[in-house]
Design a protein around this nucleic acid. Structure first.
Lengths: 102, 102
DNA sequence: TTTTGACTTGACAAATTTTGACAAAAATAC
DNA sequence: GTATTTTTGTCAAAATTTGTCAAGTCAAAA
């Protein structure tokens, strides 16, 4: 699985479609300055925006969601030197939760 | 590494010290109702509260931080069926960031 | 059974963070 | 040069998180 940032993916998608910020932002009703910030990683999109963009570009939604949410987690773990361990424990907890959901 | 929730750890710590909510909340200047909610997992503490509590109980700060932040991540991943994959990608991104920090 | 003490609950207020909008600057293309 | 596209900065609205308080439950003591 890819480890690109959501903004990079979105910019690549837009460029491969040869579209302008203006066009995409009009297409999904989002401020163009905001879209610019999202593509450059200055802001993270909302989940709804990711969904709209995946549809707009006919892109794999899951791939974008993964990139987006992992970016969010990376932010939360920023300057935590325990990051690796925290992720391990998180994984265990998730697995545990999923087991009890059967 | 442990996979207990931060609230469980805090309640265990308080009980092993034979302390009342009232006493701990006075000791670290936090509303007792809030501490009650934290111990029962209804609320997550702030990082500062985790720090204060670890000092107050003379507990291993890292252990509490890990439990606390992993709880936060679990919340963010709640009802994401891509959770596992997201964690993997997050880990890769963190590793990548750490490498470039040398 | 009444009272007391420990804890919990719910509703709300305060504070913080996130998000969106807009104008204006900067960069790029023509 | 002008026109178009993108970026930047700021600010208010919206949403989320956090804190406070009063009233509640419950168990055990008196």
């Amino acid at each position: 699985m890819q480890e690109k940032k959501i903004g990079e993916l979105l910019r690549t998608l837009r460029e491969s479609h040869k579209l302008l910020l203006r066009e995409v932002s009009a297409g999904i009703a989002i401020d163009q300055a905001l879209l610019s910030k999202i593509e450059r990683g200055e802001r993270l999109p909302t989940k709804e925006q990711v969904t709209k963009l995946s549809k707009y570009y006919h892109a794999e939604k899951n791939e974008l969601i993964i990139a987006w949410l992992s970016d969010k987690l990376v932010n939360e773990l920023a300057d935590e030197d325990l990051a690796q361990e925290i992720l391990k424990v998180t994984e265990k907890k998730i697995i545990h939760i999923n087991k009890s959901k059967l």
